[in-house]
Design a binder for these strands. Structure first.
Lengths: 202, 202
DNA sequence: TTATCAAGTGAGAGACCTCTTACATCGAGT
DNA sequence: ACTCGATGTAAGAGGTCTCTCACTTGATAA
């Protein structure tokens, strides 16, 4: 089988396609404009079709959230490896990976941890978000975080900074001056480094 | 005159009331759920009434954005004065003021600098946002920012961190453990201090 | 071959939103 | 006293969204 270009009555793998198309929609229009109907339109299926695979809008978003957590985690692992052996650099690279991932997909913390999704239970999502946090925590432990509590605090600080830069970038806050993705990513990493130094004494 | 409790046919000062009610709605439900109709309902006026004062939804939001910028600026000035004479402390207090203001009003950068509002021209809003940025920049200059560019970068870093903490808090990211407003506000300030140290050498 | 059933479709109910239009009310100035 | 303009209302057109329902299609397994 496999998906043919000209699809017939059946799609082939609509479930996966819905998630992928949801990412595109999020990247283009943000969470505010996200709708099941728009995703269906984008895929050229009827607006009822998605409901064969997800019982409601929040469950679709929840699946997107789980996929985002998984992909972000793998982006973070890749970035850490690219950052070399120094534990501080590896931890700081989380900011780089986060910023770039969210800028390109539109699916950041506001999607992954969206408060409105806490009402729908979704084990897959819980597993993925937990794995994501643990991955980042591991990087913090490796970078000499003095205690569990401080590791958590450090991770939260780095993520807050990265998310802040991402939001500001998305809202066009940096419009004048050095506003390239690379430039802002670098500044997010530098902020992360400053936070790491402040808490681990380097 | 003055607004009577039992209002008659006319409201008294609907324009101002719309802005106030918009803040309440934002604080309760966020930007995603914001609607002109809901604001009108909250005030007990017809859903057409707001359009006597604002030509469309975006212009109402724009006025809210301007009011938020003005109020936030005054909150920042108050916080800076409360922080005492030390310039670094005064600058770091921006993070505290930002976090507390947005948590209580729901109107943060995502409202004040909302990308979707850039299409509607609004001089009042432009003036207020500019004044806000200049106020914070002044605090950065006072704290030994080495150059204009670095002052801007430092301010952006502090705001990014504060906004990140605010978003994470709003999404319930801090649910377990020390999640009180005061505790998170303190951590936002400490992040700001770390960023200031990193860029000014204290 | 044929029955079955997962996964499509079209139509639409019901909700809500933005914004318009024609009309009602009332305070202020002459 | 009267009128007039600013500010309210009721009604509704036209849009989008979520989700449901009865029906259709076609891949698969007996």
């Amino acid at each position: 089988m496999g998906m043919s270009r000209e699809r017939g009555y059946h799609h082939g793998d609509l479930r996966a396609a819905l998630i992928t198309a949801s990412f595109e929609l999020l990247a283009e229009s943000g969470l505010r404009r996200f709708s099941v109907a728009a995703v269906a339109r984008r895929l050229g299926v009827s607006s009822a079709a998605p409901y064969r695979h997800f019982p409601d809008r929040d469950r679709l978003l929840s699946a997107v959230s789980a996929a985002a957590a998984r992909d972000l985690r793998s982006a973070i692992l890749t970035a850490a490896d690219a950052a070399g052996p120094d534990p501080s650099s590896r931890l700081a690279s989380v900011a780089d990976a986060y910023f770039r991932y969210v800028v390109s997909t539109g699916a950041g913390l506001h999607v992954i941890y969206a408060a409105e999704l806490y009402t729908v239970p979704d084990d897959a999502r819980r597993v993925e978000t937990r794995a994501l946090m643990e991955t980042v925590l591991d990087l913090a432990f490796a970078a000499d975080a003095p205690s569990y509590q401080q590791a958590v605090a450090l991770v939260e600080a780095i993520i807050a900074a990265a998310h802040g830069y991402t939001s500001l970038y998305a809202e066009g806050f940096f419009n004048r001056g050095s506003s390239s993705v690379d430039a802002i990513a670098m500044r997010a990493v530098e902020a992360a480094r400053a936070l790491i130094r402040a808490q681990t004494g380097r």
